[in-house]
C-alpha cells in the first residue's frame, strides 16, 4: 500500500467535505478497498473512515419499511432476527457472501459499492479500459466469469450478493453527497459503464450510501436466493438469482427476478417476470421463465455455460418457491 493520510470523520457532513480532497476514498469495512490499495490499483492520498458516523448505522423497523444503515456489517444482516423472518432472501444472500471474517468486517454500503473482480482489472501489470486504458482485455481473453447480458465496453460483472436480493425486495438506497442527495431505487443506483462514466454506480467522488430501506413485503410474499459457485462456499457467484414473488391464491401476483454474475449490474429479468405473472407455476412455466431470463444473452468464448446456468437457476428458484 502507498501511504496516505488517515482521517476519521465524526459525521456525514464532515465525511463529504473530507472526500472532496484531490484523491480521497471512503473507508468502512475496508475488505475491498484495502485489497485494491495493496494491489496498487487504487492509491488514494487520504482515507476517510466512516465508521463513527451515526447516521449510517443501525437496523430499524420503520413500520412499513425496514431501514438498514450502510455501516451494518454482513454478519449483522445475516443474523438479524427480524431480517431472517421478514426478508429471508437478504439473510440468505448475506449468509452466502465471502467468509465469516469478511462478513464481520464488510458492510452493506461497501458490499454495494465494491469494485469488480475481473482478473484483468485486478492485474497489476495491465491498465484495462475500466482503469482508464484502451482495451477490455477480457473480451478476447479468459472471460469465463464475465457478462452474458448487457452490452458494455467493460464486461466485468457486478459481484455483490446483497444487491440482487435487495433489488428483488424493491429496496431504495439513500444517498448523500455533492452530486446526489436523496432516495433512489437500488435498481437505478447501478449502471453499466460507458465512455462518459467508467464506473458501476451513480455515486460521485464525494457521495456516500447512507443506507437502504426495504418496503414491508405482503403477507403472501416468498423469496429465495440461489448462488452457484466454483466451490461449495467462500467464492463470488458464477451466477446467482434472487426471486421474490407475491402470490394471489395459487397464482403468481407480482414477481421480481434479479440475476447476479451475468451483467455489469444486477440484472432484473423483467421478461421472465412477465412470463409467470398471473399464472400458476409449474415445470414448463418455470422453464419458460428461465429461458426468458437469458433471452438475448450473447456470451463470449468461455462463458456460454452461464446462459444454461442462469436459465436453470431461475427455473430452480421458481420451482422451490412453488413447493
Amino acid at each position: 500500500m502507498k501511504n496516505f493520510e488517515y482521517v476519521s470523520a465524526p459525521n456525514l457532513a464532515s465525511a463529504i467535505t473530507q472526500l472532496q480532497g484531490s484523491n480521497s476514498k471512503a473507508l468502512a469495512g475496508g475488505t475491498d478497498l484495502l485489497t485494491e490499495m495493496k494491489e496498487r490499483i487504487k492509491t488514494p492520498d487520504r482515507l476517510v473512515n466512516l465508521k463513527s458516523i451515526h447516521e449510517m448505522q443501525g437496523v430499524r423497523d420503520d413500520k412499513d419499511k425496514l431501514w438498514i444503515g450502510a455501516l451494518t456489517t454482513l454478519s449483522e444482516i445475516e443474523s438479524h432476527r427480524f431480517i431472517a423472518e421478514r426478508y429471508p432472501i437478504l439473510a440468505q444472500a448475506a449468509y452466502l457472501t465471502a467468509s465469516h471474517q469478511l462478513r464481520n468486517a464488510g458492510t452493506l454500503g461497501g458490499n454495494l459499492c465494491q469494485s469488480v473482480r475481473c482478473w484483468y482489472y485486478r492485474h497489476p501489470d495491465l491498465t484495462c479500459w475500466l482503469k482508464g486504458g484502451e482495451t477490455c482485455y477480457a473480451q478476447e481473453g479468459i472471460n469465463r466469469h464475465h457478462a452474458i447480458l448487457g452490452n458494455a465496453p467493460c464486461i466485468a460483472v457486478q459481484p455483490s450478493d446483497l444487491a440482487p436480493a435487495l433489488i428483488a425486495l424493491d429496496a431504495v438506497v439513500r444517498l448523500k453527497g455533492d452530486e446526489v442527495d436523496g432516495d433512489l431505487s437500488l435498481d437505478e443506483f447501478f449502471v453499466l459503464p460507458d465512455e462518459g462514466l467508467r464506473q458501476r454506480t451513480v455515486l460521485g467522488k464525494s457521495d456516500l450510501v447512507v443506507g437502504v430501506s426495504i418496503p414491508k413485503p405482503a403477507a403472501s410474499s416468498r423469496g429465495i436466493y440461489l448462488k452457484s459457485m466454483e466451490r461449495e462456499d467462500w467464492s463470488f457467484a458464477l451466477v446467482s438469482v434472487a426471486v421474490q414473488l407475491n402470490f394471489a391464491g395459487s397464482k403468481v401476483g407480482t414477481a421480481r427476478i434479479v440475476l447476479g454474475g451475468v451483467a455489469g449490474k444486477p440484472w432484473r429479468a423483467k421478461s421472465a417476470e412477465a412470463v409467470i405473472q398471473g399464472k400458476v407455476l409449474n415445470d414448463s412455466l418455470a422453464e419458460e421463465a428461465g429461458a426468458a431470463a437469458v433471452a438475448g444473452a450473447s456470451p463470449f468464448e468461455h462463458n456460454g455455460y452461464k446462459v444454461v446456468l442462469a436459465k436453470n437457476l431461475v427455473k430452480r428458484a421458481l420451482l422451490e418457491l412453488n413447493k
Partner: peptide, 28 residues
Amino acid sequence: CEQRFVDPHLGLVLNASLETYKIPTMMD
C-alpha cells in the same frame, strides 16, 4: 476446482491470488 489461468494473448497469469485460485475449503 483448482486451475491456473493464463491469458493466451498476453502471456500473463490471471489468477495468482488465493481468492481467484480455488483450493478446497472446509465446506468441500
